[in-house]
Simulated assay, not measured.
Amino acid sequence: MKDVTVRYGRHARALTTAVEDVSLTLVDGEFTVLVGPSGCGKTTLLRVVAGFERASAGAALVRDAAPAPGGGTGIVFQQPRLFPWRTVGGNLAFALARHGVPREQRPSRIAELLDRVGLAGMGRRRTWELSGGQQQRVAIARALAGEPRLLLMDEPFAALDALTRERLQEEVRTLAASSGTTVLFVTHSAEEAVLLGTRVLVMAAPAGAPGRIVAELPVDLPRDAGTDPAALRAAPEFARLRGELTATMREAATLPA
């Protein structure tokens, strides 16, 4: 993104500027987290990258092309948004078909995807038979069906209980580290941002002004699959980074417009 501005409304007097003059570059294999209060434009930027919104000014490109739904980009929303009339496997089969995977290859791909998200053998289950955490795992598997080079995640764990949230955080962290997928992740939580991200971008919309990126925090913590999540959360460096990010977020909320 280069100087991206997004405005809503059809008439000059009704225009609302959601974000203004935002520049952002994602590097291959990076796990970038956007953090900030509600209304600062985090989801708006994610939707621009996904191709669901167009920039009113500035330029947004994904691998030198205009952003468009699909096209090597996967997305996970706050809610799973699964097809309730399909089985778990049926939801994944639909995604695989959309990505051009031949019918005869789909059963093995479905089994592989379910195994990756810890739901092996559950392809015949109905989505309404699953817990909220299991449904979100299916949503993640669906996003991975097209082997995306870029994965967008919009507060995917916000509606889950604390224990399920921690488990899925650990799974996504390991999955991203092992696959090398580039991730752009939206959250309100400083702890979640430090745990998952290799880089955290702080957004703010001070005094009702348009949202913008106001700070950047690099996160240099162990990311290999063998890292013990409990030990990582207890590490002094994790606590330091979480405290620094929390303080930065508080300062950003008091910036002048």
Rank of each mutant, 00 (worst) to 15 (best):
G180E: 06
T87G: 12
A57S: 13
A120N: 01
D161R: 08
G132K: 12
T254Q: 13
Q169P: 04
L168G: 00
D154I: 05
L241V: 06
F31Y: 15
T17P: 10
G90L: 06
P156M: 02
A231Q: 14
A60H: 08
P84A: 08
V22T: 11
R81E: 15
R250H: 13
A176Y: 00
V183T: 11
G118L: 03
E147Q: 15
V172L: 13
L151W: 07
A234R: 12
T127H: 00
F77M: 02
V48I: 15
T164C: 08
L168E: 01
L160M: 11
A159D: 07
A66W: 04
L221Q: 11
R54L: 10
A205G: 10
E30D: 13
R240G: 01
G74M: 05
R142C: 05
G41C: 04
A93G: 09
K2R: 15
G146M: 02
G70L: 03
E112V: 00
P80Q: 12
T164N: 10
M249Y: 01
L152G: 04
A59L: 14
L130K: 13
V214D: 10
G123N: 14
A215Y: 07
T73P: 05
H188K: 07
A225L: 09
P148K: 11
T5V: 05
M249R: 00
T5A: 11
R86N: 10
L26N: 02
A205L: 13
T248D: 09
E237D: 14
G70A: 07
R98P: 00
L113E: 00
A215G: 10
R167V: 12
R240C: 03
P67G: 01
S179N: 06
